[in-house]
Write a protein that binds this DNA or RNA. Structure first.
Lengths: 104, 104
DNA sequence: TCAATATATGAACATATATTCAGGTGTTAT
DNA sequence: ATAACACCTGAATATATGTTCATATATTGA
């Protein structure tokens, strides 16, 4: 018997697709900047647009997909909508990537 | 003075682009399956193609981009070329993503 | 040298994705 | 009710990306 059978090396396509989808959320420059901002504190759309330097519409599109993946949570306060990252595990996963680039 | 100034919330575009690029390497189903296989052991192109279920050409294209990002390292042994992931930090970053999907 | 095997590459194509634009929804104040 | 503000949405477009196909390169054995 081998200590490492080939089946141990295979990740089923369904799981792999979900893993890819998760990382894809972090695979765009604007989204990285949005998420980085949200790791520090809750923010509304207008502030994020200002910080990242893209239109509120573009930010809103990104936040929608992040919401659909349940990576961010929205909270309305009057006219404004504040977004935050709820899952600490997601925050640390994301921050690991940032750290690796900032070297490491 | 505020304990959290807005500039703390901004990741410069250049760094963000690199972070995005890193995560983009993990953002495709086939690449996820290739990388998962390589986290368990060194493998050649033909074996990877068999495990992942795509052509050797497609695998080779993926490996090229992973090589260019220095996420995998190639080692030739006769006709075959074996690939592996050298950076333990990359392995753990990737595995964190897999774990998150497999829940948690 | 020639054939066989393993991998790499470039071009082409089809699909996915980010952004913009125009307009729509929801909330507050007058 | 209306205006102003904050955000959302769908369509359109431009660009990026994954795979295939044909062909090229590299290594080995006959």
């Amino acid at each position: 018997m081998n200590s490492t059978s080939t089946s141990d090396s295979v990740l089923d396509e369904h799981t792999a697709a979900h893993v890819a989808e998760l990382f894809r959320a972090f695979s765009d420059t604007s989204r990285v900047r949005i998420l980085f901002a949200l790791t520090t504190q809750e923010m509304n759309v207008n502030t994020l647009a200002g910080l990242v330097g893209i239109s509120e519409s573009a930010v809103s599109h990104h936040l929608r997909s992040l919401r659909q993946m349940e990576l961010v949570v929205a909270r309305r306060e009057g006219k404004e909508v504040f977004y935050r990252i709820e899952d600490e595990h997601i925050i640390s996963l994301f921050e690991e990537g940032v750290k690796h680039v900032q070297h490491g």
